[in-house]
Amino acid sequence: MDVLIHLFVGLHIVGIAALLGGFLTQMKAMGGGTARFVPAMLHGALTMLVTGAILVGLDQAEYHHVNNIKIGVKLALLIVILGLVYVKRDEERVDKSLFGVVGLLTTANIFIAVLWT
């Protein structure tokens, strides 16, 4: 079971890398007002959602203590990110502040995962 958990943790990290990487590649365009949500950002957020749900299920299946408040906060942030990226995915330009919110929430999600024990 540990191998399976490690596999999904790795996939979860790949998802966050795609989401944050998509944001970082558009930083220069954000300065010029031409930033857009790239498909990698949507796919990364979806990967995070699916693998995160699987990880919570696997942890509970092994009777590990799951911090439901932490998971709820991370899920709420991810749903906001996913909603914004999904709704605005086809637009050629996204407002700077909206694009910045996605980057901020993504970074906050990372720090919550690492620092909240």
Rank of each mutant, 00 (worst) to 15 (best):
L46N: 12
T47D: 06
V56P: 05
L24E: 04
V101Y: 04
T47S: 11
I81D: 01
T117F: 13
G57R: 05
G52F: 05
F37E: 02
Q26W: 07
V50E: 09
T25C: 05
G44T: 00
G15L: 09
V56W: 04
L19E: 03
L24C: 06
L4Y: 14
T106Y: 02
V102H: 02
L82G: 13
L77C: 01
V50R: 13
A76W: 02
I79K: 02
V114K: 00
D59I: 07
K70D: 05
G33I: 13
L55F: 10
L98W: 14
V3N: 08
G44F: 00
F37Y: 09
L58Q: 03
T51A: 13
L42Q: 11
Q26D: 05
L46G: 06
I71K: 05
V3P: 03
T107C: 04
G44V: 02
I79N: 04
A108C: 04
N109S: 01
A53I: 15
K28I: 13
F111L: 06
V101M: 07
I79P: 04
A108T: 01
L82K: 14
A17H: 08
I54H: 10
N109F: 01
L7N: 08
W116H: 11
A40Y: 00
D95P: 12
I79S: 05
V9A: 11
T117Q: 12
I16W: 06
L4M: 13
F111N: 03
I16Y: 05
I81Y: 01
L11N: 12
D2K: 08
G21D: 02
L75T: 10
N109K: 02
L20Y: 09
G83Q: 14
Q26C: 07
V87Y: 15
G100S: 14
A40M: 03
V14E: 00
L49M: 15
L98M: 15
Y86W: 15
M48L: 12
V66M: 08
R93I: 13
Y63W: 04
G72S: 07
S97C: 07
L115G: 09
A17R: 08
L55C: 11
V114D: 01
N67T: 06
H12Y: 11
M30I: 14
E92M: 14
F37P: 00
A108I: 00
V101C: 04
E91P: 12
A113Y: 01
L7A: 13
